[in-house]
Simulated assay, not measured.
Amino acid sequence: MKKIERLGEYISEYSVRNKDNEDIQVYSVTNTNGFCTEYFDKDVASKDQTNYKIVPKGYFAYNPSRINVGSIDCQSVEDRVIVSPLYVVFKADERVDNNYLLHYLKSDIGKTYINELASGSVRANLKFSILQEFPFHMIPIEEQKEKMAVIAKIDESIACCDSIIEKLDLAVKSRFIEMFGDPVENEKGWEMIPLSELGTCKNGMNFASDEDGIEIAYLGVGDFKDNSRIDGVSGLSQISLNTMPSEEYLLKDEDIVFVRSNGSKELVGRCLAVYPGNEKLTFSGFCIRWRKNSDKVMTDFLLQVLKTENVRILMRGRGANIQNLNQQILGKLMIPVPNMALQQSFVEFVGAIDKSKLAVQEMKNKMEILKASVMQKYFC
């Protein structure tokens, strides 16, 4: 039997500082990875950390201005870590299973409370005093653990799907290297042709925020996920424009689109192929479109060339602060061009792998739908 109670009855804030400036690992909390260290510069350890907050194992921490996107986690990696003074740190008492509470705060109902109650004129900010007022579905801790065991089984299936997809991607990379070698070193001696001789580039549109009229799908930086292909326009964002973009701004089948500019250097140069078919699809000013005009190269082969690490390094540039890709850099990329029979063989292999990935992805989607349904049942 669920009891709706005040969350503050079960949690308490913890504000112990690293006053002795102990050498404790600095962590951040992200919406995707939870507690992690990769967002800090190497020299952070030399800074004064006496005001940083200590997070013991089993305690929670969240960024008050980012909890609305899921930046909250329970610390389970080390005996103690420290986080920015901006973070809120708290613990749950013995009547609450940490995993149950975390899933509650990340559930749809938890996100709804966060978005409704967080304050701030520029961005949401969830103070601990507000968090304490959240309605909380309290059940005996044994039931909490049972429910989390069900969620864990679903998460295990989702992780298994991710592992299979990762291995399939590695199979493509391995086959590419086996057949063609490194595209920058070109140890197999293929003919090398500048990308500018194989196709043409066009920067995307800079959309005006106040325009209204014709609805059209567009490709933005947020659409560059791990997949390398987009079919149709389903799931893409829409924008209203006063007039339909000219043909040069409408994407066609087999166009390759690159991230041109982004705050993260690692994302610059990420690319995917689009197959909009008869649908209208444009692309934002943070992207560059490349369109093939040569029969010497196949799109799926070229995509793999562009995804190899050494080529990505060339696209990103060697300067520490270069976070922009331009048509000149793209045009100068030297592309190995093996004979068409070898390219065709590789593309057929990729096609077979993609079919397997699609089946696994569909299974993962079903598991995620099941998880959402179970979470809805548990917390709403």
Rank of each mutant, 00 (worst) to 15 (best):
V257C: 01
Y59D: 01
D79E: 15
H103N: 13
I11V: 15
I177V: 15
S28V: 10
Y249K: 05
S240V: 02
S196K: 13
M1R: 11
L241F: 08
P64W: 07
K2M: 12
V81H: 04
K332Y: 12
K202V: 11
E13C: 10
A359M: 14
H103Q: 13
K127E: 10
G319W: 05
L219W: 11
R123T: 14
Y10F: 15
Q144A: 08
D210T: 06
D73V: 06
Y59Q: 03
V374K: 02
Y218G: 02
R80T: 08
D300I: 00
E143L: 11
T32G: 01
E146W: 03
E254V: 00
E143D: 13
L105F: 08
L342Y: 10
E254G: 00
Y100L: 05
R6M: 13
D169L: 08
N99P: 00
M1Q: 07
E5H: 02
S234N: 12
G220R: 09
I214H: 08
N262G: 04
R80H: 12
K47S: 06
G181M: 05
F286V: 03
G181D: 12
P338R: 00
Y113H: 15
Q328D: 13
I329H: 13
E22P: 00
L330S: 10
I239G: 05
Y378R: 01
M1A: 10
G351D: 09
T243Y: 10
N51S: 12
N293H: 08
R270T: 10
M315P: 02
K91A: 07
E248K: 09
D41E: 15
T32N: 12
L105M: 11
K127W: 04
K42E: 14
N33F: 12
V55R: 00
M367F: 15
E185R: 10
H103V: 02
R270G: 02
A208M: 12
D182N: 15
F349E: 06
L86V: 13
L302M: 03
E185V: 15
D20S: 15
E248G: 00
K292E: 02
Y100W: 13
I114D: 07
E13N: 08
Q344S: 15
T112D: 12
C160D: 04
C161H: 07
L342K: 09
D169G: 06
A45M: 07
L131H: 06
A61C: 05
F207A: 03
P336D: 06
G222A: 13
Q327A: 07
D223T: 02
E215H: 04
E156K: 10
G199T: 11
V297W: 05
S28K: 09
S157M: 11
G263P: 11
D48H: 03
I24K: 04
F286D: 03
K145S: 02
R17K: 14
N63D: 12
Q75A: 14
N51L: 08
D182S: 14
I256D: 03
L251Q: 01
V83D: 04
K2L: 11
G189F: 12
Y62A: 04
V83T: 03
E78T: 07
R316M: 14
N203W: 07
G120L: 04
D41M: 02
K3Y: 09
